[in-house]
Amino acid sequence: MSLPLVDLPEELDGRNVLVVPRGTDVVVLATAWFPDAAWTREPVSADAAARSRPMTGARFRGIAVTVTESSPGLLRLDGAASLEGPVPAGRSTAQSAGLAVPEVDLYALVPADPRASLDLVYGWMAAAARRAAGSIVPVDRAHAVVVPDPGAAVDLTLWSAMPLSAQDALPLVRPAMTGARVGPTDVPHPQQSDGTSGPPTFSVTATFEYDGAITVRTGRSTEVPVALSRLDWREFGPWSYHVTWIPPEPEELRLATPSQLHLIARSRVVPSVARIAAALWRAVGGTVVDSGGFIVPPGELQDRATAPR
């Protein structure tokens, strides 16, 4: 069976293309994995191009008409590759790329060295497409368009400068675990002697009758997600609060198309995961990062927490 053709501009032939909804900030996505990502050539929108040109051209009833075009920029990710874009496209391109949005931006992958490994870049493209509810059109158009499931990024981690003891944390997270049996899964144990002080780390699990379990696990690390490296040091810390969903059938987490039962369970636990992270954030501050390595701002966290179960 032949695959449907993706409606892309000719200049993108022979390239891997990241497709995202119009206006998506790809710099924010890029710096979450590549802290030094930056424009080496700034993109110019059609509106900006029009403002920079004098009002000349064809005239109709005294109105000046100027034909302008946008100009794609070049966003360097790392030494191995850059992204060229955005190239704006409409509904037909969006639909052929697997997206149900009226307008999209296209970004073509430009390798800097054909011999360099692009594994990290490919991993980022998949994570960025999931985060932005976008897709990837592979260089070989005979292969299917990759449309990662945005809802698959369930787990959240809060990084804070303040530690909590098990006695202090449990009353905070228990209200967010309504309908579950809550109990410790790992007794508190002291930190290794590394010159730092803090309460013992611990984990607690909420088990739901049909939807699997949610585990809250604390820890302390000298390494934090790349996305945090661009923040003020007061906005995060080494203490981590991992909020993880364990579905009834854990192997379905690795499936591109999980079962309907998995999707139903996931939709019911997502608000609980967010409410737990939000409760901890209100208590100790810090910054929340999703399982794709992207920062989840407080407004988005609130939206997740208040989504109907």
Rank of each mutant, 00 (worst) to 15 (best):
A128K: 02
V19P: 00
L3E: 11
L75Y: 02
V269W: 02
I136G: 00
G293I: 02
A38G: 11
Q95H: 11
R282E: 14
P9M: 07
R141W: 01
A126R: 15
R91W: 12
S117N: 13
A274Q: 01
G183S: 13
D25T: 06
T218I: 10
H242Y: 07
W39A: 04
G195H: 09
T205C: 07
P247T: 09
P35M: 05
T31G: 00
A80E: 11
L74F: 05
A81H: 07
G73E: 03
Q95L: 15
H242R: 14
L75R: 05
F202S: 07
P72V: 09
W159K: 03
D36W: 01
S165F: 09
D36C: 00
V224S: 13
R220M: 12
A89I: 11
A256M: 08
A128N: 05
V104K: 01
V289H: 06
G183D: 12
R76Q: 15
W233A: 14
I295H: 04
S45F: 03
A32D: 06
A80T: 15
P148T: 06
V28F: 05
F208N: 01
V289W: 03
L3Y: 03
L29P: 01
V19Y: 02
Y210K: 14
A80D: 12
S2G: 04
S197I: 06
A152F: 02
G151K: 06
S272R: 15
R76T: 15
W159V: 03
I214A: 07
D149H: 04
A213T: 07
F34V: 03
V110L: 15
R268A: 11
L75C: 06
L18A: 04
V269L: 12
V6I: 11
W239D: 09
S221G: 10
R234T: 14
P4G: 08
V27M: 08
R275I: 04
L109H: 07
P308F: 05
R41V: 12
